[in-house]
Amino acid sequence: MMNPFQDLVLNLQALAAQVPELVQPLIVMLAGAVPFLEGEAGSAIGMIAGLHPVVAGVAAAAGNFLSVLFVVMLTSRARTAVVNRDRTRVGVTVGAGGSSASDHDETDAAFEQITSAKPESKGRQRFKRWLVRFGVPGASILGPAAIPTQFTSAILVGAGTPRGWVLLWQAVAIVIWTTLATVSIWAALTFVVGV
């Protein structure tokens, strides 16, 4: 007699069998690209659906990394636009009369008060502590324990960390976390569930 989890796994495998084999890893890649699911849950979905653990892990990690790459490029462009706009505004303000400079200072001060009044989430606070303590490599590797890799990469690039450095350490973190999850889930499915 099967337990409910075995029945669920077998039903999911039967559903996945209706999808062409070449498309199954693409579905796992899409799952890996979703924040909070990422490579860890993506590989679990793939293995439960019947994919080989290596294929599921690689597809999920690739999807996770592609979404991080997209976020890094988007955040980098946004940061560059803001920095360039601020430099232009400072140049214009310096050349203008003194009254407009004080107006901008008052506006900036009011904006700072509004944005600093919003409380940060516990995950973001934990991530910032890790960033200060361990730097970009440590924060990237430990970050997925607090917040998704997409958020981690956006914070790092938004703070001015070079894109290449962020992508390197996010790739390392994705490989580590996805491998740990894939091996753990494979062991659980093999030895505990018996599927």
Rank of each mutant, 00 (worst) to 15 (best):
M1T: 09
M1A: 10
P4M: 11
F5W: 13
D7L: 12
V9C: 12
L10Y: 06
L15M: 09
A17K: 11
Q18Y: 02
P20W: 08
E21P: 01
L22S: 13
V23A: 12
V23M: 11
V23Y: 08
Q24P: 01
I27W: 05
I27T: 00
V28C: 00
M29W: 01
A31H: 01
A31Q: 09
G32S: 08
G32I: 04
V34I: 15
V34L: 08
P35N: 00
P35I: 00
L37E: 06
L37Q: 06
E38H: 06
G39L: 02
E40I: 08
A41F: 13
A41D: 02
G42I: 07
G42P: 12
G42A: 06
I45E: 00
G46L: 05
G46C: 04
I48G: 01
H52T: 03
V54A: 11
V55Q: 10
G57I: 04
V58M: 08
V58R: 00
V58N: 05
A59H: 05
A60Q: 11
A60G: 05
A61R: 00
N64I: 04
N64K: 04
F65W: 12
F65G: 05
L66G: 07
V68I: 10
L69A: 15
L74P: 10
T75M: 15
R77P: 06
A78N: 04
A78V: 12
A81G: 01
V82F: 08
R85D: 06
R85N: 06
R87S: 13
T88N: 15
V92T: 08
T93H: 06
V94R: 14
G95M: 09
G95L: 09
G95Q: 10
G97W: 04
G98Y: 02
A101D: 04
S102K: 14
T107Q: 15
D108I: 06
A110D: 10
F111D: 14
E112L: 12
E112K: 10
Q113V: 04
Q113N: 11
S116H: 14
E120W: 11
S121D: 12
G123M: 06
Q125S: 12
Q125G: 01
R126Q: 14
R126T: 10
F127I: 08
K128P: 00
K128N: 14
R129A: 14
W130C: 05
W130E: 05
V132R: 15
R133I: 10
F134W: 07
V136A: 05
G143H: 02
G143A: 03
P144N: 02
A145Y: 00
A145H: 02
A146M: 15
A146V: 14
I147K: 01
P148S: 06
P148H: 03
T149L: 12
Q150I: 07
Q150Y: 03
T152I: 14
T152H: 02
A154E: 11
A154T: 08
L156V: 01
G158Y: 07
G158Q: 09
G160N: 03
T161A: 12
P162F: 01
R163G: 03
G164C: 03
W165N: 09
W165H: 13
V166G: 02
L167R: 07
Q170M: 15
Q170N: 10
V172S: 03
A173P: 12
V175G: 02
V175D: 04
T182S: 15
W186D: 14
A187P: 00
L189F: 10
L189N: 08
T190R: 11
T190I: 05
F191M: 07
V192D: 09
V192L: 15
V192G: 12
